[in-house]
Design a protein around this nucleic acid. Sequence first.
DNA 1: CATCGATGTTGAG
DNA 2: TCAACCTCGATGG
Length: 331
Amino acid sequence: MPEGHSLHRIARQFSRNFVGHRVAASSPQGRFAEGAALIDGRVMVDARASGKQLFLEFEGGRWLRVHLGLYGAWDFAGEITTDATIRSSNGRIGQTNQHGTIVDDDAGEDSISSIGAPRLARRHKARLRMSEQEKEDDDPDFVFPPEPVGQVRVRLLTEDAVADLRGPTACEVLDPAGVESVLDRLGPDPLNDPSEAAKARVVEAVLAKGSPIALLLMDQSVIGGIGNVYRAEMLFRARLNPHTPGKKVPREVVEALWDDWVYLLDLGVRTGQMLTMDGLDPEAKRKAMASREDRHWVYRREGLPCRVCGTNIVMELLAARKLYWCPFCQQ
DNA sequence: CATCGATGTTGAG
DNA sequence: TCAACCTCGATGG
C-alpha cells in the first residue's frame, strides 16, 4: 500500500528516534526469531529508504531490509518525534512552544504550508502507525513499552522508543553485499539520487522498452517508489495515454515524468499525503488536504466526470492492478 | 459481525 | 495469469 513517500517518512522516523541507539530486537510472533537475534543488542547506525524498500543498518555491517508490501505497517510508540500542525501567529518556525520541543522544520515555504499552519515536529510520548496512512493515537496514558498486539514480526526497542513491524512482504537481515545486490535491481529513487545521470538512466530505460508506460512507471527496476496512485495521477498530469509504449513516448515527456516524480515525492515526504492536484487554487488545495474524495485527478474516480473535461473517468485492469485515466485528456 | 478490497510483490504453473 | 501473503478500515446486513 505505501508508495515511496511513506518509506522515506518511515526512514526519517527511525533516524529521529533509533539511529544512535542500542536496540533490543525480538520477534514476538516468532517467525523472525533467528533474524532478530542477528541484530539484537546492536546500535542502529543508519536508516534509509530506496523506492518502497527500507534499510536499517546496525553495527557490524548487518542490515535489516523490510518491504511492507500490500498491508504492512510500522507502529511506533514511546518518546518519539511526530509531525504536529502548530498554528503560529507570526509564521515563524523553529521556536519552542507549549507543545514541546520543535526539533525539525522541513515544511518551510512550500505551497501546502502556505495554505494553513506549517507542519512541525515535536518529541513527546505518543503512538504512531505508519503505513500508507499515518495515524497518531491520542491516548497519552499507555504503558511503555506496550504489549505487542497481534502478529508482530519484529519489535525494535530502545530505552524510550519501540517500533513494531506487522504484515511485511519482506523482512530479512543482509550483509553489505546482500544490500548491494538488492539496490542493484532497483531503479533510481530521486530522493536518494536527483542527478542528471539518474534521470538519464530512467529516460533510457523507458525509451528502450515496448511495454506500456503505465507498466513502466510502476516497474521498480525502472524507477523507484511509484505505486498505483502516483502512476495514475502522474499520467494524467502529463496528459499521457497509459498504453503508449515506452519507446513511443517523446523523450521530453519522459524527462517531464521524472521531473514530476522528483516534485511529487518531495511534496509527499514533506506533507505525508499523496498530493497531486497542487496546480489548483487555494480553496481546492484545502479540500484536497481535507478529504480523500477531493484529492485525486483520476485515481479511484471511475465513472465520475474528469475534473478538466467532464468525460467519465475509466478504469481498466492492467497486470491485475486498477488503472484509472481520462480517455479524452489522455489521448 | 461477516465480507470485501487495498497505495505490492513473489513465485508456482 | 493468478493465488498467496496475512492486515485492517470500510461497507453492508
